[in-house]
Amino acid sequence: MSEKKINPMLKMGLEMGPIVAFFVAYLRMRDQSFEIAGNSYDGFIIATAGFIPLLVITTAILWKLTGKISKMQIATLVLVVVFGGLSVWLNDERFFKMKPTMIYLLFGGALGLGLLRGQSYLKFVMEEMMPLKEEGWMLLTKRLTYFFLALAALNEIIWRTQSTDTWVYFKTFGLTAAVFAFFMTQGKIFQDYAIEEEDA
């Protein structure tokens, strides 16, 4: 099924909304404690508990409006539900903090497996957005594989050695900025390996 076009701002809002909502909720509740069913939960756990259904709802809306969601979005949603759910159920924030590590290990591992098989799985996901020659896809995939594995390692270092506040800022802004910066620095690949109209 081909993807239906929707307003780009609406699409961005649905994709980024839950992350922003989690950040705002955490800032408002980080110093509070909540008694629920005889158990005490801090603000981080409550913000996580709200983030999970919100992400499910916005992903479902995005699917309804566009008729399609990517495999990366599905994998992210599953890991959020599993690791976020474990954090809420066990009242242990460590599981949710490990979630970015698992996501980037999954993406990096999948791309790395494709490279070992002589294929670029990234091409299958993004070919319509960025038409490149095969050599370009392989080079970009190799770089992105290393990048994802580096982000996984960095997330582990941050959440294990820094405060929860630092990790929340890192997750909300640092990871997003890192991914944006990565693609912005790959301009030479897009320039050197772009498929021109006459090649098509």
Rank of each mutant, 00 (worst) to 15 (best):
E3G: 10
E3Y: 08
K5D: 07
P8T: 09
P8D: 14
M9E: 07
K11E: 15
E15P: 03
M16R: 01
A21I: 00
F23P: 02
V24L: 13
A25Q: 02
Y26H: 04
Y26D: 04
R28V: 09
R28I: 12
R30V: 07
Q32W: 08
S33P: 05
E35Q: 12
E35Y: 08
G38F: 05
N39T: 13
S40K: 06
S40H: 11
S40I: 03
G43Q: 01
F44S: 09
F44Q: 07
I45M: 02
I45V: 09
A49T: 11
G50T: 00
G50M: 12
I57M: 06
T58E: 08
L62N: 11
W63E: 11
T66Q: 12
T66R: 07
K68I: 00
K68C: 08
M72Y: 12
M72I: 14
T76D: 05
L77S: 13
L77T: 14
V78E: 08
V78D: 04
L79Y: 11
V81E: 00
S87G: 11
V88T: 04
L90G: 00
L90M: 06
N91G: 04
D92G: 03
D92C: 06
R94V: 13
P100V: 03
T101W: 00
T101S: 05
M102R: 01
I103Q: 04
Y104N: 10
L105F: 15
L106N: 07
L111E: 07
G112S: 12
L113Y: 15
L116V: 13
L116Y: 03
Q119M: 03
K123A: 08
M126K: 11
E128Q: 15
M130C: 14
E134M: 03
W137G: 01
M138E: 08
T145V: 15
A150F: 11
A152H: 07
A152N: 05
W159Y: 15
R160A: 13
R160V: 10
Q162L: 13
T166G: 06
V168K: 01
T172G: 10
A177C: 06
A178D: 03
V179I: 14
A181T: 14
F182H: 07
F183Y: 14
I189C: 10
Q191C: 09
D192T: 13
A194D: 04
A194L: 00
E198F: 04
